[in-house]
């Protein structure tokens, strides 16, 4: 168990060390999200979201997050295959540690993204959130699902041609149910409405996809 944790930690810290030296994923993801956010904000206008537009705000926020994630998350595995470092990893790391390390890296990357983009979004579009805690939990639950699903699909895409477009094509049908659920949950939190099953179902989605990914990843990764 200790060695399993150590191995996972080794991968997570390697990912961040390489990332902090190249800053490729961080800058891509953040710039992408902020550019989109500014475009949305300018289109909505200086007064921010009107009461009628308010239900649309969680949709816009999650679409920004989803597309920013699409721009940066596949890199975890695509970069390994492109720079021929995937085979050394195959020969040295246990698949379960590798998957967990990579997923944790993607998750932390997403949480950084959410931590930067969400406050900006709420301020620029003048959206007031009635239930901040539920809203934060919805962001976390959505982030976990996005990270797990994207990591598995990134590992698949890395072994194919036309990687960039293929990632979006493969990921969307898998991630859309989650997106719908977390948008509902965020909306409920913004409006401060009573309980909705959306958040619970999103947690169910996360756990099902996590279990499935842990089982499927060794098959994707190894021949």
């Amino acid at each position: 168990m200790m060695s399993w944790l150590g191995e996972t930690w080794a991968i997570l810290s390697k990912e961040w060390r390489c990332e902090l030296r190249s800053r490729y994923a961080l800058s891509t993801v953040l710039l992408f999200a902020i550019t989109t956010l500014i475009a949305v904000s300018i289109s909505v206008g200086p007064a921010g979201a009107t009461p009628e537009q308010r239900p649309l705000m969680p949709v816009l926020l999650w679409l920004i997050l989803l597309f920013a994630a699409t721009a940066g998350l596949p890199r975890t595995f695509v970069h390994e295959e492109e720079t021929h470092t995937a085979d050394p990893l195959r020969l040295a790391a246990r698949p379960s540690c590798l998957f967990c390390g990579k997923t944790l890296y993607n998750l932390t990357l997403l949480l950084v993204l959410e931590a930067v983009v969400t406050p900006l979004f709420l301020v620029l579009l003048q959206v007031e959130v009635a239930d901040l805690w539920s809203f934060a939990i919805a962001l976390l639950v959505g982030g976990v699902g996005l990270a797990v699903g994207s990591t598995l699909i990134a590992a698949m895409v890395a072994q194919a041609r036309a990687r960039g477009p293929l990632f979006a094509v493969l990921a969307f049908p898998i991630l859309l149910p989650l997106l719908k659920l977390v948008i509902d949950a965020s909306f409920v939190a913004v409006a401060g409405e009573a309980q909705s099953p959306a958040l619970g179902l999103a947690v169910l989605y996360d756990s099902m996809v996590t279990v499935a990914s842990l089982m499927l990843f060794p098959v994707v990764w190894n021949p």
């Binding site: 191995e7 390697k14 190249s22 720079t83 021929h84 050394p88 040295a92 790391a93």
Partner: peptide, 20 residues
């Protein structure tokens, strides 16, 4: 066909695989 991480130094590369 095997490459190691260009962002890391030679020792860091070997350290990483030793930790794995």
């Amino acid at each position: 066909a095997v490459e190691l991480y260009g962002e890391l130094s030679t020792a860091e590369n070997l350290d990483f695989f030793a930790r794995l």
